[in-house]
Simulated scan of single mutants.
Amino acid sequence: MGRLLLCTAAFGAAAGQAGAQAWPEKPVKLIAPVSTGTALDISLRMAADRLSQAFGRSFYVENVTGGMGLTAAQTAARAEPDGYTFYLAGVGVIAADRHLFKSLPYNPDRDFVPVAMIYDSSAFAIAVHPDVPAKSVPELIALAKAQPGKLSYGTGSVGVLGIPGRWFNKVAGTDMVPVPYNNAAQMMQDVIGGRTQVVFTTVGALDPFRKAGKLRVLAVSSAKRFPGWNDVPTIAETLPGYNIVGIGILVAPSGTPAGIVQRLNREIDRILKEPEVVQRLLALGMTTSGAGTPQSVAEFMRNERENWDKMLRGVNIQPQ
């Protein structure tokens, strides 16, 4: 009986390896939880194009929007774990949504397995209108404390987009007034026009206004300075431990064969080391350190959850 069980296990492992080597035998779907043309969508399409070339099968992006990202996560979680559906999960699904919503149509700990990092940092930045006298984060904090409730800042209104400003107020001891926007273009117009004095938004969104001299960027939200913005400090250089970034992690429905996950991981790692890919991600405001391994990505996800747990409890977020 023991020998039979060993033979059965060996046969199953061999069959799994053979299946992974034959994969993919049909088109592979990559779910993006955003509309076309956004930075996350562009990064995923860039990966899909190169994966199609590498494997000789179509990898295509399906945009599943609505429900503040929950619809896409639910779609991915309920997909067949056959290696033909993957999902680019952001920091909301990985770490924050369990604080933002009273109930979720998926379980972030149980329903997904990590495949590869696509980008490990999509930094936010804090910028001010040129008429604001503050030229650094310490000067902005001093100005805000000298004028309690007088400075207002533009911020996104969906999901985690409002957290960078709220956490800044918390750890800096300031009370700048948040002005949430559904429309990012309007948010930028208002800070450029002086209707708000400060803005928290992504590096990618700020870059053209920084280059044109229309806004003064004070700092970035990542733990390290952003490549190409070497003269711009991090917020953490003034407020140690401040680290809020977007992330993009390709995940699969739980139960997806490990051999397929490993094959895809290795190919994505090769793609992310191409200089052209690195530069295109930087242009979108993203950095990559490679795909990692499924195990290292799982550890990264655990660390992100701990960081966001601390922040979201700290700002006393109320779930919807």
Rank of each mutant, 00 (worst) to 15 (best):
P130T: 04
G246I: 04
P27N: 09
M311V: 08
Q189W: 08
R57P: 01
D190K: 07
K214D: 10
P105N: 11
M46A: 08
L143T: 12
T85W: 04
A9D: 02
D190P: 07
A14M: 05
A212T: 09
V297H: 02
M1R: 13
I163M: 15
D231H: 04
L206V: 01
F55W: 06
R57Y: 03
T85G: 07
F200M: 13
D269Y: 09
T293P: 03
P275H: 09
Q189S: 14
E62F: 08
G67R: 00
W308Q: 01
M117Q: 02
E274N: 11
M187H: 07
D175A: 05
G314Y: 12
V158N: 07
R166D: 03
A298I: 02
A146S: 14
G173P: 03
A134W: 00
S222I: 07
V191M: 08
P275R: 13
L239F: 09
N307H: 14
M301V: 10
P240V: 13
W167C: 01
D120M: 10
G248Y: 03
V160G: 11
A95R: 03
A205W: 14
V297E: 10
D175E: 11
A72I: 15
E299Q: 11
N183R: 10
A205R: 12
K224I: 07
P240Y: 15
L272D: 02
G194Y: 10
P275W: 15
T75Q: 09
G56P: 06
G154S: 10
A134D: 08
W23F: 14
L30F: 07
D231F: 00
P130A: 01
L239M: 09
V91I: 15
T256P: 00
P180S: 11
G204C: 11
T201G: 13
R166E: 02
M188L: 07
V137M: 09
A22P: 01
A22E: 08
P148G: 09
P27K: 07
